[in-house]
Design a protein around this nucleic acid. Structure first.
Lengths: 210, 210
DNA sequence: ATTTTTAAGTAACATTGGTTACATAATGTA
DNA sequence: TACATTATGTAACCAATGTTACTTAAAAAT
């Protein structure tokens, strides 16, 4: 049996489906920073996330990045579903934010299981549901918040998914993911520090729980 | 037989499903400006669009609006799917941009048909697919474009879905949908007119095909 | 220990977009 | 016709964000 499959997905999928996943899926571990998917690539398998965090990014034609959302335990990548069904290229980049454990499912099985297992159907639809809602939240942030609030939200989201109030990153990296410049981030971080929301160190930002 | 059902969906759904839709669905016409869904409302039925255009809008807590995308012929509202599956309230507002014809399906049928009809499953998944891609495009616009390019894209999108190069609207209305102010829109429209991209009249904007 | 590289702080300035205020033009209405 | 209403044009100003340039500090490499 694939490591941790039963423990993580046993309550969602029926026994028969668990057995099928066990037979056709592949267990995989990736280290922090590993690129799981690149824009323009064709997708050959679909990930079931067991532990760790995956960040999903969008990029425009000029190489400008934007963080869309994080995937956590129990999630799958709706964008992958998207690509599998439409046989189109990936529209996004996916990178391991932390060390992560996942099960890779060959895409041919997807459609087969959709017809066969109600639990799989519900899982796939729930994934789309969750992703649409996260995209809405992303749109809310970009459209309705100013950069200081977006930054604070970004830091809190990051702390939540990594379960760590100390965020190890650089101002430049944050700037990439929020699609702004390093100087702007440094300026706003200093402002947040003066407000008592955070403490700043080199390569480290500590969230102060108010 | 419900008006135009066979003609519009006969090539997508099998005969048996068409018959079921005919028995349980309701034909409906709505006039321009009709509100089909409001934020916070529970959703009791799912629309299949036959003709016309529906615009889907997001709103933040302060009443600030933002246009997300247009629904056209053959589309359904993935947000509705979302709500039906999760039994949650609507996250968006939907308003008829033009006179529109649609078929309303009671939500109980949705899950039943997912198990029963492959074509329905594919239709639902394709809807999610299309909506995710449109959300991505929306995010691209907000995150990567400046207001002048967003405005031009907005005008061209609107002209495309209504199949009309003359757009009947006010600067104030555009400002609401792009979440900016009337003065900004007037200023940028004038700039676009000077560039020869459009011609401005009262309640009317004409796109000049370059 | 010295040098190099990378990260962060900050000032000065430019640009975009938002706000206020008011003028003018088109349309609707008494 | 006279008046009211709505839409648009525009100037002047302000705030948020982006850019350039340079400094200082920490860490890594030699």
């Amino acid at each position: 049996m694939i490591k941790e499959l039963q423990a993580n997905y046993g309550h969602i999928f029926e026994e028969e489906l668990i057995n099928e996943i066990n037979q056709t899926g592949t267990y995989r571990e990736v280290h922090e920073g590993h690129k799981l998917m690149e824009i323009g690539e064709y997708v050959k398998s679909m990930p079931l996330l067991i532990s760790g965090v995956i960040k999903v990014l969008r990029e425009d034609g000029d190489g400008d990045e934007l963080l869309l959302y994080f995937l956590e335990h129990g999630d799958t990548c709706a964008m992958t579903l998207n690509c599998c069904m439409g046989h189109t290229k990936s529209e996004v980049r996916a990178i391991a934010e932390t060390h992560a454990k996942l099960i890779m499912i060959p895409i041919q099985k997807m459609e087969e299981w959709l017809a066969k297992y109600t639990s799989w159907r519900n899982f796939v639809l729930l994934s789309y549901h969750n992703r649409l809602n996260e995209m809405l939240e992303t749109i809310d942030s970009i459209a309705f918040l100013r950069m200081d609030d977006r930054l604070l939200k970004y830091l809190r989201d990051k702390a939540r998914v990594t379960k760590d109030n100390e965020i190890s990153t650089t101002h430049q990296q944050i700037a990439y993911e929020l699609h702004t410049s390093r100087v702007v981030i440094s300026r706003l971080l200093k402002k947040l520090e003066n407000l008592g929301e955070i403490e700043l160190y080199r390569n480290q930002i500590k969230l102060v729980n108010a």
